[in-house]
Design a protein around this nucleic acid. Sequence first.
DNA 1: TACCCGTGGGT
DNA 2: TACCCAAGGGT
Length: 322
Amino acid sequence: MKTVKYNIIHQNILTWYEEHGRVTLPWRNTNSPYEIYLSEIMLQQTQVKTVLERFYFQFLEKFPTLKDVADVAVDDVLKAWEGLGYYTRARNLHKTAIETKGILPNNAEALEKLSGIGKSTAHAVACFAFDEALPILDANVKRILYRFFAVKSCNDKKLWELAYKLYDKDNTYIYNQTMMDIGSAICTHKNPLCNTCPFESLCQGKENPLLYPEKKKKQKKPIRKRTLVIYHKENRYVLAQNSERLLSGLWAFKQEEDFKVNDYMTELGEFKQHYTHFTLEASVVLLSCEEQENYFTIDEIHDLALSGADRKALALLEMHCQ
DNA sequence: TACCCGTGGGT
DNA sequence: TACCCAAGGGT
């Protein structure tokens, strides 16, 4: 039995999408499950602008099919992901490409079992690629739900219940896409435009939308001071591949704590790099050494996947070499 | 559950 | 500037 309670809102949403929907987004103009899935992974905790302008087309140019991803080494996928962040996404993408042999399953239940695909991404791919009528629960939907139901704080289980309560089971594709468009353009976390919102008539939070959700107290980010030591022999430089969780699989210059600079080293400069849970304050030094295992010329380093911090260090090195 | 995981946009 | 936070998932 269909709930009639939100019929008006569902109708408003269809109208709003016709007039304002971001219908030109490339992942809304393809039936390719891979192209839709790739967009969903890239867009996790990442703004549309970044994915659209710097990564999505470039990645598809390099890997036109999921099978193409499966056929290369994970390092090649990481290189294509360089600069996008959250590199576990790239490693899971590669893993999923291999496990599925380049053919994604066509339903949310099977999709969610794959590495890097949680419930929301599974629902998104199932809905957008296979027309399965399931709600999504991304940051946009969450903010709308908090405000629409005037909920200050709750867990994901409760949010999923609200998502299921509100979504349009008959026009799920447009509903889900519109939720993200409205969250991005109308129900923004600052300065929401309630008077033009399709939800306005029944929104319980419209009088004071900034109350929802309740802000969590932030902790101040600690600072890590490190010395990036670029060991070299003549024109070849030492890098190693990260094996810890942070930046796993990416190549990096050696980092030292409490490193004493002396006359045998050349100071190349300093920089800051902001991570989610700390700020790196790095000073970069150049130091000659005996031959080691992984030596690279500048040109070879450009073919390795580096983090933002190591790319800054590399830039300082290149300035020094000029 | 709380924490970890990158980078850049927007204010 | 400093801060919040973005088409979340893994552990």
